[in-house]
Structures are given as C-alpha cells and as structure tokens.
C-alpha cells in the first residue's frame, strides 16, 4: 500500500538515536511564532495548516530539513498563501536579517 511520506508508522528504520540537543534560540522563535499565529487572539493559521504544509514537502525535502526548518518553511508558505506576507517582502526581510547578522558578527571580532 502506498502512503504519504510522513506516514511512517511500522516501516523499517535504524536504531533510535538518543542524543538530544538543546533547542537553539531560532528554533524556539519558530515555535513562538507558530503559537502566536494560532492563538485565540489572532487565529491567523491552524496546526492543521502547519502539518499540511509539512506533509506536502515531499520525501526529499522532508528528510533533508531539520524539524524547525520544516516548521518555518510551512509557516512562511501558509502566510504567503493567505496574503499576510508577500514573497518580495520576505526576500527583502531575509536580506536585512542576514545583513544585520553580519554586522553583529563583525562587532564581536576582537
């Protein structure tokens, strides 16, 4: 029986890798963004929309991305679909974030 990629229950897989990492600030930020967008006050998106976006990524990208990379990818696409953000705004804001980061990195150089 064929099934979608995320539906992996019962399939063969290797040993459970038990190493854990502490969540990085940006990962927690993704989580915070999602929680705010889905809260009662805003209701801009739903958890089901988040999952749909992740499940539609397809097998290659699903495994290639880390957990919160999948999340922010899905959140961003959903916001674009809903017209909350445009692709152009996103591109500019990403460049600005990158530039700001580069400045901050320069500033810590001894």
């Amino acid at each position: 029986m064929h099934r979608r990629h995320h539906d992996m229950g019962g399939l063969p897989a290797g040993p459970v890798e038990q190493a854990e990492h502490d969540y990085a600030p940006w990962e927690k930020k993704v989580d915070a963004i999602m929680r705010l967008l889905t809260d009662k006050q805003r209701k801009i998106m739903t958890v089901d929309e988040l999952r749909r976006g992740i499940e539609e990524m397809g097998p290659g990208i699903y495994d290639e991305l880390t957990y919160y990379e999948r999340w922010i990818g899905s959140v961003t696409n959903t916001l674009i679909e809903k017209g909350v953000l445009t692709v152009d705004e996103l591109g500019r804001a990403m460049e600005e974030a990158q530039a700001r980061h580069a400045e901050a990195a320069k500033a810590v150089c001894p």
């Binding site: 940006w26 963004i33 991305l65 974030a97």
Partner: peptide, 15 residues
Amino acid sequence: PLTHYQAMTEAVADL
C-alpha cells in the same frame, strides 16, 4: 552567515 531557514525565521518575525 545565518542559514536560509534561520534568516527566514528572523524575517517572518520582523515582518
């Protein structure tokens, strides 16, 4: 540099 998805996270938060 920020990874693509880190930059995306910052950008979405900023927007």
